[in-house]
Design a protein around this nucleic acid. Sequence first.
DNA 1: GACTTTGACTATCTTTGATATTCATATTGT
DNA 2: ACAATATGAATATCAAAGATAGTCAAAGTC
Lengths: 153, 153
Amino acid sequence: MARLVDVIEEMIKQMVEDNNGSCTINRSQLAEKANCVPSQVTYVLTTRFSSGNGYIVESRRGGGGQITITRAQHVTSDDYLHRMLESVGNDMTQQQAKNLLGSAVSCGVISPKTGALIMSAVSDRALSKIDPDIRSVVRADILRNAILALMIS
Amino acid sequence: MARLVDVIEEMIKQMVEDNNGSCTINRSQLAEKANCVPSQVTYVLTTRFSSGNGYIVESRRGGGGQITITRAQHVTSDDYLHRMLESVGNDMTQQQAKNLLGSAVSCGVISPKTGALIMSAVSDRALSKIDPDIRSVVRADILRNAILALMIS
DNA sequence: GACTTTGACTATCTTTGATATTCATATTGT
DNA sequence: ACAATATGAATATCAAAGATAGTCAAAGTC
């Protein structure tokens, strides 16, 4: 029942933490360990380790190819918030928002309370009255404003 | 004949109460158990578990999708810490400690920074020099003392 | 008439696999 | 030797299939 994405996410995070904030993996090997196809690893990296989530991912193909995941060192909260702001695109699903805020919370840039507050403000429930066609766009708007408010205060 | 809404409402409330004020369900499974269509569950959640009713509902679609219902109750930090203290038994594994602290952090009772600090203090890594036979017992001791310190401060 | 029940359709997230792209190294032609 | 090419070994991409939950309107019930 455990989702593959969660398993792989946890494996990578563990390796990063166990190794001073950075780790290098072999995609095929990790896929084998997690018992999945290699592209699943790529999926996890794009959905859970984007720059918006505070990680830098570099890779190389070909013989001896590899992927390096580094937890970004954010000098200041302001810096982090700026990057957060940039990573909010034109639209954003609930899940994407959750990931983004969760990362900010786990980095200590915002408090859990603040994270929960913002999350509740951009949840599908809070926005249920909005036409689903534009909901994700509205969510992105609210999120950008919230982040700006954090930057000012 | 009891109405379906009431049956489902009761089932969910029971689960929430049985599980420390929060439970996670699978919509289809619950619908099957209640012998109804899945959307009926959604209907109950909207009409009986709205934020106005003191509940927070979060959900996720897709594979492994789920719905989490949380009773929003006001518990003082001190209450929480007391319960935490009680739940630390005679011994505690690293994972149990992680779960306990994670919950406290996500409830906002302690900051992520504090959670990480305590976790590092009771990690297997920190306690590696201790005989594995008594490690879990020592961990529980440290944890109890740490929680007491939080309560006093 | 208000609330409940149902089900077809939609939206979102995950998993898989086929194909494309890139890189290192071996091979070949001159 | 050198440059060009072929080969094999990785990773990236993308679309289709699968798995859930949400929406909405019509039908049913009290």
